[in-house]
């Protein structure tokens, strides 16, 4: 049986109390929400916080506010997000619904939270291994070691951002609220991330992500396409989130295409810009696909062949944009993603 290391367990009742504990304990403390990312990492000794600060009893983290736009508490489980009526029925928010519904497995979605998903540790086949496996490669730069085995001359860790909801939420223009003992701030979700496998968040260790807010997206359509080996469990090895606002005649007014799992952060591509002012013709879609492909930099540290993963980016961008255009993609979606 894989077992957790020893830890101190704290169970604050409010965000303020949690923030105080984090401030006092410093980097030795970590937040735990659903635990579906942190606990496996602890069992493998990738992360060994001395203190776990649980968000389970913290009030207010499951609030859903549906007004102009939508605010989702960071403590909502992914299943709760999937079942939020405001998401299910809206074309604008569909990408989030689809992304959340494809995270991990049904059980893990019942446990894992939205906040945890956004703060998910980056992943790498040299890193997500038991301690004694990592000892056999003399560890790596991200944890206890010197070298990055994926790119031995690299100065930084290239572990992969593997969250499904972040690309979707970024395509929707989401903002997140971060609270610490020193105060709180709101920032664009896009700015929460940086392209460094070790320091992948701009969040300070004492900050708590409390809520995600989405703008009013009437007039928008969005979608999320995920590439993974199996219809369950697997992290994305490519995520394509697309959100488009079009005029009644189909002319694209706004478009964002965000890629997941091809870099250490979700990648806002320039492909969206190419679509502006035109219609979602096959040619425009192909051009967007090509543009997005050039941004993707997959490495040999996840499942499947890295060249192939780059090769298929444009197909996946195509599926997404055709779905937004109104093509019936349900058969393809079912075949590729086992998602209805």
């Amino acid at each position: 049986m894989m077992r957790l290391p020893w830890f101190n367990y704290r169970s604050p009742k409010s965000v303020a109390e949690a923030a105080r504990i984090l401030a006092a304990e410093g980097r030795d403390a970590m937040l735990i929400a659903g635990g579906t990312d942190l606990l496996p990492n602890m069992k493998r000794r990738q992360q060994t916080p001395a203190t776990l600060v649980s968000l389970r009893q913290v009030g207010g983290l499951k609030d859903v506010v549906n007004g102009r736009g939508l605010t989702l508490g960071a403590g909502l489980t992914l299943s709760e997000v999937v079942n939020t009526p405001a998401l299910k029925d809206s074309c604008g928010y569909r990408a989030l619904h689809q992304a959340a519904a494809q995270v991990a497995s049904p059980h893990l979605r019942n446990m894992g939270t939205l906040g945890g998903n956004l703060c998910l540790d980056t992943r790498c086949l040299y890193y997500n291994q038991n301690e004694d496996w990592r000892r056999a490669i003399d560890f790596c730069m991200k944890c206890n070691g010197e070298t990055c085995w994926v790119a031995t001359s690299s100065k930084r860790c290239m572990a992969v951002s593997s969250t499904d909801t972040a690309p979707a939420l970024i395509s929707l223009g989401a903002k997140v609220r971060l609270v610490s003992a020193a105060g709180d701030r709101e920032l664009e979700l896009n700015d929460l991330y940086q392209n460094d496998g070790t320091e992948y968040l701009t969040r300070q260790p004492d900050e708590i992500l409390t809520a995600v807010s989405l703008p009013d997206l009437s007039g928008w359509k969005s979608t999320y396409w995920k590439l993974r080996r199996r219809g369950s469990f697997d992290f994305p090895i490519l995520g394509v989130a697309a959100a488009v606002r079009a005029a009644p005649d189909g002319t694209v007014l706004d478009a964002r295409i965000v890629l997941g799992a091809v870099s250490s952060r979700p990648l806002m591509t320039e492909a969206g810009g190419l679509l502006l002012g035109g219609k979602l013709t096959d040619e425009a879609i192909a051009a967007a696909g090509k543009k997005a492909t050039s941004a993707a930099k997959p490495l040999d540290n996840t499942d499947l062949d890295l060249y192939w993963r780059k090769d298929v980016v444009s197909s996946f961008v195509g599926y997404a944009l055709r779905e937004i255009r109104g093509d019936d993609m349900s058969a393809t979606r079912l075949r590729i993603m086992r998602q209805l």
Binding site: M2, Y9, G35, T36, K43, L52, A104, H107, N110, M111
Partner: peptide
Amino acid sequence: CELGECGACAVLIDGEPLLSCLTLAVE
């Protein structure tokens, strides 16, 4: 597996199927 990768440890908590291998007993 004890890592959330198989579902053999699933139990119901408050009616929801969850993985007992990733649930802290103290919670």
